[in-house]
C-alpha cells in the first residue's frame, strides 16, 4: 500500500476494499434479463390484482344485496401471492404459543430484491413464514426460516458449527449464546433494534427468526419495539414444531 493519500479516512477505506472484485457471475445481460423478469412480474401483479378485485366484488355483491353484514376481514394477504386461504396451522400454533403479543397473521412482504435472495424454495418447517403482529394500531413482524446447510457455497464450515459462538467476536449487541444438546442458540440485536435468533442444529441446518418492529411501507406504523420479547423469541426458536414437516 504505497499509494497513501493525505486523507487518512480514505486510506482506511481503501484498505478495507483492497482489490475486491464482484464475485457475481454473468455479465450485464443477466441484469437486463432480471429487469425484464421484474417488469413481467409487475404486469402480472397488476393483472392479478385486478382479477382479485373483480373476484372480491363478485363475492361481496350477494352479501351486500342480501343486506347481511359481512364479517370484517382483517387478514393481511397479498392477492397475487398464490397462497391458498386454507386453515393455517402455523398461525394457530403461534397464536397459542404467544398469547398477548397482538393479532398474529401470516403475511407476505415484497422486499423487492431480485437476485440470489429471491430464490423461492419450498418451506421445510411447519412454522416457516413471515407473520405480522398488530397491536394498538401498530404492526411489527417476525419471520421464521429453516435453512439447510450447503446453501452458501464457500462459507467456512466452522460458522455452521454449534460450537461457534458469534458473541465472543464482539460487535453484536445484547448477544447471548446457549449450547443445547442438539445444537446451539444465539440471540442478538441489530442496529435498528431487530432481534435475531439463530438456532444451529448439529449437522443439519439452522432456524433463523427475525423479530422486527415493522415495515412502514408494507404494514403501516411500526411498533416501538419488536413484537416478541427475548423470552418469547427463545420459546419459538426452541419449539419442536419448528422442525415438523409443513
Amino acid at each position: 500500500m504505497n499509494d497513501m493519500t493525505d486523507n487518512p479516512v480514505r486510506d482506511l477505506l481503501g484498505a478495507a476494499v483492497g482489490t475486491a472484485e464482484s464475485g457475481a457471475h454473468g455479465g450485464t445481460e443477466e441484469l437486463f434479463a432480471a429487469a425484464s423478469r421484474v417488469r413481467r412480474r409487475r404486469r402480472a401483479g397488476v393483472i392479478g390484482g385486478a382479477a382479485a378485485l373483480a373476484a372480491g366484488a363478485t363475492l361481496l355483491a350477494p352479501q351486500l344485496s342480501g343486506g347481511a353484514a359481512a364479517p370484517r376481514q382483517t387478514t393481511t394477504t397479498v392477492a397475487s401471492s398464490g397462497r391458498q386461504a386454507a386453515p393455517d396451522r402455523a398461525v394457530a400454533h403461534l397464536r397459542k404459543q404467544l398469547p398477548g403479543v397482538g393479532r398474529i397473521e401470516r403475511t407476505l412482504l415484497d422486499f423487492g430484491a431480485p437476485g440470489k435472495n429471491e430464490i423461492i424454495k419450498p418451506e421445510q418447517g411447519a412454522l416457516e413464514g413471515i407473520f405480522s403482529v398488530s397491536k394498538g394500531g401498530r404492526t411489527g413482524y417476525f419471520s421464521i426460516d429453516l435453512r439447510e446447510y450447503g446453501v452458501e457455497p464457500g462459507k467456512d464450515p466452522k460458522f455452521n458449527s454449534p460450537d461457534y459462538n458469534a458473541c465472543e467476536t464482539g460487535g453484536t449487541a445484547d448477544c447471548s449464546y446457549e449450547r443445547l444438546s442438539d445444537g446451539s442458540l444465539t440471540i442478538y440485536r441489530l442496529d435498528d433494534g431487530t432481534l435475531v435468533a439463530q438456532r444451529r442444529l448439529s449437522g443439519r441446518g439452522d432456524v433463523l427468526i427475525n423479530d422486527s418492529r415493522g415495515n412502514r411501507a408494507a404494514l403501516g406504523p411500526e411498533m416501538a419495539a419488536p413484537p416478541l420479547s427475548r423470552d418469547q423469541l427463545r420459546k419459538i426458536a426452541l419449539d419442536p414444531e419448528e422442525l415438523a414437516k409443513p
Partner: peptide
C-alpha cells in the same frame, strides 16, 4: 431495517478471507 436475510451475524464478517482483499 428489513428482513434477516439481509443481515449476517457480525462475527461472521471479518473471518471469511478472500485472496487479495
Amino acid at each position: 431495517r428489513r428482513f434477516w436475510r439481509r443481515e449476517r451475524p457480525f462475527g461472521e464478517l471479518p473471518e471469511q478471507a478472500h485472496p487479495g482483499v
